[in-house]
């Protein structure tokens, strides 16, 4: 294509070759504003190359102290803490799922025709979802004291709203025909829920609860740091006395546990959801 042809096309449709000057100026301004904000934010947090370098070398020192990992003298405490974390996650998830079940039914558009009730329940779910597990843990530690009960309550409270929302969505996706079959046979609302809706949604609900259990075993480790029971307490104590080799050992154990639970739950979910043609 010759230069004159190119020029001709450029004259005909200039926007196809470069954005108009107005837009270019606009883009430059946005980019400059973003860079200025980034620089200011980094300065605010004391983000200097020197501190970054210091931090990295500090991390390297810790990593060196971690090797080789060692169980230390308190094997039993570590295992008990780990088991406690898993138990907290399981119990918290089970409690959340049991409470989310009726709430999910109440929040489902195809079941609850009272729009105001359903709407307020849905907004309540949204509100609860904005509060993190750790905040709940801090609150419950004050309310019921140190220990795993606070952890279980924190996990359950944080998950109820999310699970209820997911459950409501699963219920809204049920096939109406199957429920109608139960209604046509003379089933009342209880029968329609039990035999028409529940068989359709239960596997999905169980699978979601399992997924939450997985992520809660990871989260439960941190709860101990604020005193809500579990392995987190053991880690916090050892960091305080700089027993980094024991910290490393606990972290390795946690990785193995979480991986095992992930694998088990993935297998279970597969079995629950699968089985369709």
């Amino acid at each position: 294509m010759s230069g004159t042809e190119v020029a001709a096309w450029r004259a005909r449709l200039p926007e196809a070759f470069a954005p108009p000057p107005r837009r270019r100026l606009w883009r430059a301004l946005v980019a400059a504003a973003f860079l200025a904000w980034l620089g200011w934010a980094l300065a605010q947090f004391g983000f200097t190359p020197a501190r970054l370098w210091q931090g990295l070398s500090g991390l390297a020192a810790i990593l060196r102290l971690m090797l080789p990992p060692s169980p230390g003298a308190l094997w039993g405490d570590i295992l008990r803490g780990l088991a406690e974390s898993v138990a907290m996650a399981l119990l918290g998830t089970v409690v959340a799922a049991l409470l989310a079940l009726p709430l999910g039914f109440l929040g489902a558009r195809n079941l609850v025709t009272a729009t105001l009730l359903r709407f307020s329940i849905r907004r309540l779910f949204d509100g609860f979802r904005g509060i993190d597990q750790l905040i709940w843990a801090l609150a419950y530690v004050r309310a019921v004291g140190l220990g795993p009960l606070a952890g279980v309550l924190a996990i359950a409270t944080a998950d109820i709203a999310v699970l209820a929302k997911l459950y409501a969505e699963a219920i809204e996706a049920v096939e109406r025909r199957q429920v109608e079959g139960v209604a046509a046979a003379g089933g009342g609302w209880a029968e329609r829920l039990r035999f028409g809706v529940l068989p359709q949604v239960l596997p999905v609900m169980l699978a979601q609860a399992l997924y939450f259990f997985e992520s809660n075993t990871r989260a439960a480790a941190i709860l101990g740091v604020v005193g809500a029971g579990g392995i987190g307490l053991q880690i916090a104590e050892r960091i305080r006395v700089r027993a980094w080799d024991e910290v490393a050992f606990i972290i390795l154990l946690m990785i193995v546990t979480v991986a095992a639970i992930d694998w088990l739950s993935a297998w279970l979910r597969q079995r629950l959801i699968g089985g369709r043609r």
Binding site: E175, R177, Q178, E180, G181, V182, A184, A185, F195, G196, P199, Q200, P203
Partner: peptide
């Protein structure tokens, strides 16, 4: 009632 699409509970 007997439906065209059977309306059985599939699971």
């Amino acid at each position: 009632m007997v439906f065209q699409q059977f309306n059985l509970v599939q699971r």
